[in-house]
Structures are given as structure tokens and as C-alpha cells.
């Protein structure tokens, strides 16, 4: 089919519009964060300030609680991602490789948990964690986030395991590999993209979570980034430069992990060996 040049130009323009729309808010965040305070209001709607500075970043890193928030978020999101990935790998492997009686019920349970409103769980979870001393603690957050993310991650891991032909494990058995060797040398390398994707997914989700963090944490010492930023915003709602600098910092880990997932979104490693 011939593609008409007018249509091609329209197509490219539409794509450009989407790219601009997607990136503009992030660009603005960056722009304000490097605008010196004295130019903030006079050059409010300029696309790029006449002078840039990293003072806001320096201030946020040196004089605010944000390094603590950042550290807390890193601990919570990291621990959640690792824990979820381990649990989801085990459960996903069971769902992918075994036929057992309770399988149907486990899948149903996990599907239902995706349906119900998490706001409904706020109060009961608070009541349950409070006597255990798990409110206002990073451990409590990790436990809650892990539970919330396990169902989806399990389905994700299951689909990755489904993509690995059973023949490969049998070939490894015949080659004399123990279960552990087969897992480490065959299954694990082939599932690595899946594990990376799951880690990235869960990390981003835990890094972003706001409601439960607000509910379960009070006090700066164990605040995560979203809570810290929100508290900061409601207290000093005029220090835009600093807030946006903090926002850019919050964006970095999430975007890094997104790029990691993006690479593995479509994965054709096994396809080549299986298809003729």
C-alpha cells in the first residue's frame, strides 16, 4: 500500500503531540527545580529560566529531612520488591508447574484481592498492626505492601515460568542436574527478565504508595518519600523550587526502574529455541 505523504505528516505530528503532552509536566518540574528563587516569579511562564542553579537540590539534600525520607523509601521499596519477588516466584512456579487441587481456589483468591477497595482495609490493618508495634515502623509498611503486591506479581511470574518449556527442565534432569542446579543454571537465567520486570513493577508501586504510608506512619523518622513530600508541601507551600527539586529526586528511582522494565517488556529469548 502507498502511504500518502499528508497522512504520514499527520501521523508524525500526532505522535509529537503525545510526546510533548507526556513529557511537558516532567519538563516543567525540572525547569522550576533549577530556576533560582529570584527568577521564579518574574519568569514564571518562560520555557527555560535565563539563569539556572542547583541551589534547591543542594538545600534539599543538606538541610531537610528528605535524605531520611529517601533512605526510608529506598529501604521500604527495596525490601518490598525483593520479598514480593521471592514469594511470587515460589507461588508462580507452583501455579505454572504443578496441577494440584487447590490451584483453582488460589487463583480465584488472588483475582478477588485485585477487585476490592484498599481504602476499606486501612482501618482494620491499622487496628491489627497497632498492638504488634508495627505502626509507625518501616517493617509494618513492608508487610502491608508485600501482601498487596504479591497477587499481581504471582500472575506475572507465572506467565514467565509458563514461557519456559518443561522440556528444558527434563533435559537438565537427564543431564544429571539436581533440582537446585537446574533452577540456578537453567530456570533462573531464563527467568531473569521476568524477575527484573517484577522487581521493577513492585519497586515502583511501593515507592509511590501514599494512603497506607500516611495512615500507618506519623513522624518524620520513618516517613517515606510520598508522605514527606506531602507534609513538606502542606507546611511550606511556597518553596516551590525546593519541592520540585525533591520531586525530581523522587522521580529518579521510579524512572530508572521503568527503563529496566521497558527493556524486558517484550521478551523473545526462549522463542528462538522452541520454535522451529
Amino acid at each position: 500500500m502507498k502511504s500518502k505523504p499528508v497522512l504520514t505528516i499527520l501521523h508524525r505530528l500526532a505522535i509529537l503531540a503525545y510526546v510533548v503532552f507526556a513529557l511537558f509536566p516532567l519538563f516543567w518540574l525540572l525547569k522550576v527545580s533549577v530556576t533560582p528563587n529570584d527568577l521564579l516569579y518574574s519568569e514564571g511562564v518562560r520555557m527555560w529560566p535565563s539563569r539556572t542553579s542547583f541551589d534547591h537540590y543542594a538545600f534539599v539534600i543538606a538541610h531537610s529531612a528528605f535524605p531520611t525520607f529517601f533512605k526510608n523509601s529506598l529501604i521500604v521499596a527495596g525490601s518490598t520488591a525483593v520479598t514480593v519477588t521471592i514469594l511470587a516466584s515460589l507461588a508462580g512456579y507452583a501455579l505454572s508447574r504443578f496441577n494440584f487441587k487447590a490451584k483453582y481456589w488460589i487463583v480465584a483468591l488472588m483475582l478477588i484481592t485485585q477487585m476490592f477497595p484498599l481504602v476499606m482495609l486501612v482501618a482494620p490493618i491499622f487496628k491489627m498492626l497497632s498492638p504488634l508495634g508495627l505502626t509507625n515502623s518501616l517493617t509494618g509498611l513492608v508487610i502491608v505492601y508485600t501482601a498487596f503486591n504479591v497477587p499481581f506479581a504471582t500472575f506475572l511470574m507465572q506467565s514467565f515460568f509458563d514461557g519456559i518449556p518443561k522440556d528444558l527442565e527434563e533435559a537438565a534432569m537427564i543431564d544429571g542436574a539436581t533440582q537446585f542446579v537446574a533452577f540456578r543454571q537453567i530456570i533462573l537465567p531464563l527467568t531473569l527478565p521476568g524477575i527484573a520486570a517484577t522487581l521493577g513493577f513492585v519497586f515502583t508501586a511501593a515507592w509511590s504508595e501514599l494512603l497506607f504510608a500516611l495512615m500507618l506512619i506519623s513522624g518524620n523518622d520513618s516517613s517515606t518519600f510520598p508522605v514527606g513530600l506531602l507534609t513538606f508541601v502542606s507546611k511550606f507551600s511556597v518553596d516551590f523550587g525546593q519541592m520540585m527539586a525533591a520531586g525530581v529526586l523522587a522521580l529518579i528511582p521510579a524512572c530508572l526502574f521503568f527503563l529496566l522494565i521497558q527493556r524486558y517488556l517484550v521478551q523473545g529469548l526462549t522463542a528462538g529455541a522452541v520454535k522451529g
Partner: peptide
């Protein structure tokens, strides 16, 4: 990668 980026931005942010 660029147009899907907003999806990676934390919702609070």
C-alpha cells in the same frame, strides 16, 4: 518509552 513514561511517575508526584 517516552510516551509511556507518565505511567512510571508515582501517583502522588
Amino acid at each position: 518509552a517516552l510516551v509511556f513514561l507518565p505511567w512510571a511517575v508515582p501517583s502522588f508526584l
